[in-house]
Computed example of a mutant assay.
Amino acid sequence: MTIEHGGALDRAIARFGGTRADWLDLSTGINPEAFPLPEIAPEIWNRLPDESLLTQALDAARGYYGAADTAAIVAAPGTQALIQIVPELVAPGEVAILSPTYQEHHVAFARAGWAVVPCADVGSVPATAKAVVVVNPNNPDGRIVPGGELLALAERLGRHGGFLVVDEAFADAHPEVSVAGEAGYDHLIVLKSFGKFFGLAGLRLGFAISGAEIVRKLAERLGPWAVSGPALAIAAHAFASGPVLNDFRERIAARRDRLSAIFQRTGIEEIGGTALFALIRHRQAHVLHEELCRRHILTRKFDYEREWLRIGLAAHEADFNRLEQAFKDIRA
């Protein structure tokens, strides 16, 4: 199964020309503004990350995500690493994945020998499912499953030795939807991405919050020093940044409003999304994608839904103006 992800700028350049500096990459759900980095002591670069640094970062993450004191938490080099490990923690069975969604969950479970059943909603999850995966808010349509439904599903699965994976990669900007505060049992695994919201995807950092046994297994599989010292130091700083973090969150909201305003003015139908990206419907979305590429603007198209494009946030006002003018030129 070949998966196309956002951020494939090199391929776009190879086909449509230009240099990286020429392109406006709106194909990802990563915040285009990187969170301000702290000064990092030289010894953090020079030494393996020690236990105190890891504990500091995990404690900061626990507070930031609102995890209960009884919950266990583990840091990983990106949630992608966790997505690949989780299916291997128990003997395979049947897994239901609310779809369409981030396709790496399907790939990871199938590779581990699970029978994957795509489901449209929680009500469609078969009683035979041993595990369920819900991306919440969902990528790419922004669908939100209420927390009460998720917790009820997790308890149901737990009664038969199963578990629910809730991937909250885009929940930082929508904290009200998070169930991280209810984690602490092995039948609920909450995945958290650091890089998307904080605009630091290159750092490769993610967290899993669950029961002690699941987290122990994850930590064992990840091995020692799974996360770099600088990544841990940056996370601890970001999680505790208070007013700076509030301002950062407000700028994300302002960019998102600016993107929606462009769709309204240019007659583009917006059908979903999260704070970090929008999903639009267009009768010839793949043609629109190519026309934008010819103008060196990259968006995310989908093979499974040819009327959808996902469009991320731009960093600067000039970039938003460029996108708006491109839509107008294409429609002219």
Rank of each mutant, 00 (worst) to 15 (best):
P100D: 06
R47F: 08
I85E: 13
A120C: 06
S27F: 03
K217G: 00
A278V: 04
Y304F: 13
D329T: 12
P36H: 09
G206D: 05
A108I: 10
D25P: 07
E155F: 07
L26W: 11
L37K: 14
P146K: 13
L288D: 03
V86C: 13
L245E: 06
A219G: 12
R258K: 11
A183P: 01
Y64S: 06
E213D: 15
Q80D: 15
P230F: 06
K328D: 01
F239I: 12
A72N: 04
A96Y: 03
K130L: 11
H5D: 10
E324G: 09
R216K: 13
N31G: 09
D319E: 15
G142P: 02
A61P: 04
G273K: 12
P243S: 03
V179P: 14
L191W: 01
T101D: 11
D247Y: 05
D319L: 10
A72K: 00
S228Q: 04
A180F: 10
E4P: 02
R143N: 10
I297M: 00
R47G: 01
G17E: 01
G202L: 02
N246R: 14
Q103K: 15
E324K: 11
I3W: 15
P118Q: 05
I44G: 04
P230Y: 07
N139I: 07
P230K: 08
A61S: 08
V117W: 15
A91Y: 09
L279D: 02
F170P: 00
H316D: 08
H105R: 11
E94N: 08
T266P: 07
I311Q: 03
